[in-house]
Design a binder for these strands. Structure first.
Ligand code: DGT
Ligand code: MG
Ligand code: MG
Length: 441
DNA sequence: GCCGTTTTCGGCCCGACTGTTTTCAGTCG
């Protein structure tokens, strides 16, 4: 990523955090969204701006006038006034503090106002001196959790490469398949979307004994820390240095859960908004038809005035259990497969690789999804070295392996004598190799 | 702050888990 993109990602993320501290959650979301776009785009925003002007910035998804002008201001002056002012109010290393599991904007605000905590070291020493437990809203457990979370954070190495995550995940999934009651095990999250880097390993399990799955994971060897565990999910840190999230559901909810857990978050939000527009509600249990003005509906006028989710959990006395019953004014209409859900919403199912809310939903509505390149689409390989120089396998072995992968042709590209250290071929050897190739053909 | 074949203003996803709160806010997925 370009240097300027990186700096702007950091700035917009910090602005998002500060707006959340200030209880402006939609501005927070806007800045996070903007940061995410800059984080994933391959172009350098400065080059884009210099070539095509501010309009090119505004055309980026989730970047509008406001952020485009701030990008322009930063390119021209190396500063953003609004950001500088916000940072004067909260001169805090916000990014490093939010990396501590369980510490978010609201905690950071209190810790700064009450204890003048500005960075990770401040936080650690305050916790060690037992200054945090006495704050209102905090306690002994919170303080201890902070210390543990800092310890794990300090040994963290950042996001994994897909190529490292995938083999590990597959091995882990095999273990889950052996647990009693397990019906389906699937990759989810960025792993299933095949992102180049993976923040954590997300796995979905369909089981008629979800609790057993979660218990077994909790007891697995290599698990160093349980970040959280309940009736439906568990999140752990393992000795390899990363986190695993497992969600366990009943088979009838499997499609909805897979849709939810595959994400991305932005894709989910967009999809759920479409559901609302069509008179549905979408969550990880299914797609629900909202019945209008049913006589036994719970005082709909009162419900409007209260934060919706609070109201619902309040009704049940504790966390709502979707496995048993849903609300009387909601009718389950889809959830066993992803296809059911997307179809009911008027969309083609798209491959996980596309689910980033960057136009794939609009394309799916129009039935104009792009066809992705698959392994079977690869016709040939135009760079192959063999044991004639520094490769490991013979020409014949490479040819057979290529056939096995459905390739129609390969190009043998061994080194010539100019690269002596790899045993480069001289004129005579090249001609010999040609004969060998003709023989095999 | 962003966005729009029902809107250029008025909405903005929805739920699980934890801790310290006695009824829910904060954090995370
Ligand atoms: N509806 C909804 N779904 C979410 C939200 N946050 C996360 N999810 C879903 C979609 C994500 O892909 C999935 C897994 O969450 P993660 O935090 O692990 O994100 P993801 O795997 O996409 O990226 P990562 O590589 O882990 O950073 O959970 C949210 O705020 N709302
Ligand atoms: Mg993930
Ligand atoms: Mg996760």
């Amino acid at each position: 990523m370009s240097d300027i993109n990186k700096k702007l990602v950091h700035i917009f993320e910090e602005m998002g955090i500060i707006y959340e501290i200030k209880d402006d959650k939609y501005r927070q979301r806007a800045y996070y969204n903007g940061a995410e776009i800059l984080n994933t785009m391959s172009e350098d925003v400065e080059i884009l701006y210099k070539k095509e002007g501010i309009l090119a910035l505004v055309k980026l998804p989730r970047i509008g006038r406001g952020m485009a002008e701030k990008i322009e201001e930063f390119i021209k002056t190396n500063h953003i006034k609004e950001y500088d002012n916000l940072k004067k109010e909260f001169p805090i290393k916000l990014e490093e503090l939010t990396l501590v599991e369980g510490v978010g904007p609201k905690m950071i605000k209190v810790l700064y106002k009450e204890l003048n905590i500005k960075n990770l070291n401040d936080l650690e020493s305050a916790a060690q001196k037992e200054k945090i437990r006495i704050l209102e809203g905090f306690g002994e457990k919170t303080e201890k959790n902070i210390l543990q979370a800092i310890a794990f954070l300090r040994q963290e190495t950042g996001r994994m490469l897909l190529g490292d995550a995938l083999p590990y995940a597959r091995e882990f999934m095999e273990k889950l398949k052996k647990i009693e009651g397990v019906e389906i095990v699937s990759e989810a999250g960025s792993l299933r979307r095949r992102k180049e880097t993976i923040g954590d390993i997300d796995i979905l399990v369909a089981s008629n004994k979800p609790n057993l799955v979660l218990q077994k994971i909790e007891k697995m060897k290599g698990v160093q820390k349980i970040w959280g565990k309940g009736e439906t999910k568990i999140s752990v840190h393992i000795e390899q240095g990363f986190d695993i999230d497992v969600r366990a559901v009943k088979e009838e909810n499997y499609g909805a859960a897979l849709q939810y857990f595959t994400g991305s978050k932005e894709h989910n939000i967009k999809l759920r908004q479409i559901a609302i527009d069509k008179g549905y509600k979408l969550n990880e249990y299914g797609l629900f038809q909202i019945q209008k003005s049913s006589p036994e509906a719970n005082q709909p006028s009162t419900e409007k005035l209260l934060p919706a989710s609070r109201f619902k959990s309040g009704q049940a006395g504790k966390t709502q259990n979707h496995n048993s019953k849903f609300k009387s004014n909601e009718k389950f209409v889809a959830g066993r497969t992803e296809k059911e859900i997307y179809s009911k919403l008027g969309l083609e199912v798209m491959p996980p690789e596309l689910r980033e809310n960057i136009g794939e939903i609009e394309a799916a509505q129009k039935g104009k999804l792009p066809k992705l390149i698959n392994y079977g689409d690869l016709k040939g390989d135009l760079q192959i070295q063999t044991n004639w120089t520094d490769g490991k396998n013979s020409i014949e072995e490479m040819a057979l392996a290529a056939k096995e992968h459905g390739l129609e042709y390969i190009l043998i590209t061994d080194h010539t004598k100019r690269l002596a250290m790899t045993g480069g071929l001289n004129d005579k050897k090249v001609l010999e190799q040609k004969k060998e190739i003709e023989k095999l053909n």
